[in-house]
């Protein structure tokens, strides 16, 4: 199933429903080693459900998950030994100190725990001076940082951060962002980070997926997807199926679909005249051609929280 040697995580046709509500629908994507992989979607799009499935907190109805080339169902513990996660709010034991919380979860991860290791981690997230304070006295940002320390303490290869900047002030957001970049750059970690804000993902991720109503909308390199010269084109022809077939054989296959009797695809603006020429040269009558908007606009619209939301787990 692994498509390339450096694939760290791969899901295959994941589905999960809660009663009648389809939270995740046929979702496949892959994360490569060293990626900062942005997982983008509005609240209720299915991000948290997917992430919980990746961490074995939720059992998929169908589909499979492979991490480090192993099936999550059969090799759960081996996989989780190398995964660190912060899921939504990093809730910790309020009645225990930061140090005790970290120690406890480090032990649960199965590593040898030493005071210096734990203090190093607390240092990394800037909590060394408060190591003995009860977590109940911490601010949201401090808890978030401690959560990240917990996720990192066992030196995992893959780090999963679910909305890590939720509820943080701008400085806190910037700190987390820098931490993620540091982890990727200096420690060569693979990071999967979810957000409902394109602007946030745009700043850190190299690859991303956008999901909407549990389905994948698009997956790819951030640079490419957010290229301002790229656009979505809507075409109506005299014979759509013939036109679709023609386009399938061309260079413009990206995002190619037929929606409501219209062909839709992603294209660089400068390629549009050539595409028109190609179709007409193959005796296809074009009734309508419409440049919808830039990809960024499209994603912004998709990830606009004002749109209808079906919250499941958020």
């Amino acid at each position: 199933m692994i498509s390339s040697m450096n694939t760290i995580l791969q899901t295959n046709k994941l589905c999960k429903s809660f009663k009648d509500f389809k939270a995740v629908d046929n979702l496949s994507f892959q994360v490569n080693q060293g990626d900062i992989f942005g997982f983008l979607g509005q609240n209720g799009a299915g991000k948290s459900t997917t992430i919980r499935m990746l961490l074995s907190l939720i059992q998929p109805d169908s589909g499979s998950i492979e991490i480090f080339g192993m099936n999550l169902n059969t090799h759960r513990n081996e996989i989780l030994r190398n995964v660190g996660a912060v899921i939504e709010k990093p809730d910790l034991y309020k009645y225990l100190s930061a140090y005790d919380n970290l120690k406890m979860f480090a032990k649960m991860s199965g590593i040898k725990v030493s005071k210096s290791l734990l203090m190093d981690q607390l240092e990394l997230v800037g909590l060394a001076s408060r190591y003995n304070s009860k977590v109940g006295t911490f601010s949201q940002g401090m808890k978030q940082r401690l959560g990240i320390a917990v996720a990192l303490v066992h030196n995992p290869e893959l780090i999963v951060l679910d909305e890590p900047t939720n509820g943080l002030d701008p400085q806190g957001i910037a700190d987390i962002r820098n931490l993620i970049l540091t982890l990727s750059r200096d420690r060569n970690k693979t990071v999967l980070v979810s957000s409902h804000l394109l602007s946030e993902i745009e700043l850190i991720a190299n690859r991303m997926i956008i999901i909407h109503h549990g389905k994948k909308v698009v997956e790819g390199e951030v640079k490419e997807l957010l290229d301002p010269s790229k656009t979505i084109l809507k075409i109506e022809t005299g014979d759509n199926s013939k036109a679709f077939e023609l386009l399938s054989k061309s260079n413009w296959t990206k995002g190619l679909t037929i929606i409501q009797n219209q062909i839709q695809l992603e294209i660089t603006k400068s390629d549009i005249p050539e595409l028109v020429h190609y179709l007409t040269a193959h005796q296809t009558d074009i009734y309508l051609i419409q440049n919808l908007h830039s990809l960024e606009d499209y994603f912004l619209k998709l990830t606009n929280p004002k749109e209808d939301v079906h919250a499941v787990t958020n």
């Binding site: 919980r52 961490l55 074995s56 907190l57 759960r76 513990n77 081996e78 996989i79 989780l80 030994r81 995964v83 996660a85 899921i87 939504e88 709010k89 990093p90 809730d91 910790l92 034991y93 309020k94 979860f105 649960m108 991860s109 199965g110 959560g147 917990v150």
Partner: peptide, 14 residues
């Protein structure tokens, strides 16, 4: 309730 359950269950413990 505390939210620690999900964190605990992402640890390599059955």
């Amino acid at each position: 309730n505390m939210g620690t359950l999900r964190l605990m269950l992402t640890k390599p413990v059955s």
